[in-house]
Design a protein around this nucleic acid. Structure first.
Lengths: 122, 122
DNA sequence: GTTCCAGATCGACGGACATCGATAGACCGT
DNA sequence: ACGGTCTATCGATGTCCGTCGATCTGGAAC
């Protein structure tokens, strides 16, 4: 890894013709790609995506006790998914008494949504 | 799994007060969530996300030989990532002679982008 | 046919992940 | 203090994933 690689690998071809114009893409967004991929990975599970969907559509806090019966998974597993969403910065929680209330962090999906929505064809 | 669970788990609380209003969310989008999560999972790797980024910004086909030097991974690993993106329906390829050209399938990111961009606060 | 090259596939390996039951921790009523 | 309830954590387990080197495939040039 971390080999000093030249960005124009045209080298020698059988007939010398290039396969396409060089892309030579700078790694401007290495770090950004990691952050975006982290959010995407957190959404890369059907249950977590549905969790975020429920929380978003509710536009407010939702008690965990209301989330548990929505999925055919055990309570520890649901807690695990909520933790992953929390670690990805997508949701946050607040404890009141016995119950924990979760909500979507405003703007958490913004960067990834913006990247996906960017119209690169125009 | 697949327990016949009642959707209103209010049961008996210590003082009988509910933690919040019932959500009772129908699984309208179980199947859709799986499809969206599949796309998100495919984007849940920095290299794959950068690959899609390069292909999208190029707005055309890009030869694999141009992609290899952009990342510090081996050629088989890159091929593996391209395969995963292909299986997720995000990219497609065309072989011409010795070389393989990849491009982003138009509209492949649309559903997920639409879901993320949906303004549930308004 | 033979040789070379680009790309895909294979097999292996280490690490991450989803899932569960059991348990711990926090909190409320009595 | 005690018992009950909600949520988080722990430990174990089976599966999936990213990565590599080695190899296979099929096309081009000689």
């Amino acid at each position: 890894m971390s080999v000093d690689l030249e960005l124009t690998p045209k080298a020698k071809r059988p007939n010398g013709q290039p396969c396409c114009e060089p892309v030579v893409y700078p790694d401007v967004e290495r770090e950004q790609a990691i952050r975006l991929a982290d959010v995407a990975k957190a959404l890369g599970d059907p249950i977590r995506l549905q969790l975020v969907d429920v929380l978003r559509k509710h536009a407010g806090e939702v008690c965990v006790c209301e989330l548990v019966p929505l999925f055919d998974i055990s309570q520890p597993t649901l807690s695990h998914h909520l933790k992953r969403l929390r670690e990805a910065g997508i949701v946050a929680s607040e404890r009141r008494g016995l119950w924990a209330y979760y909500y979507v962090v405003p703007g958490a999906l913004g960067p990834l949504a913006a990247w996906m929505g960017d119209d690169h064809d125009a």
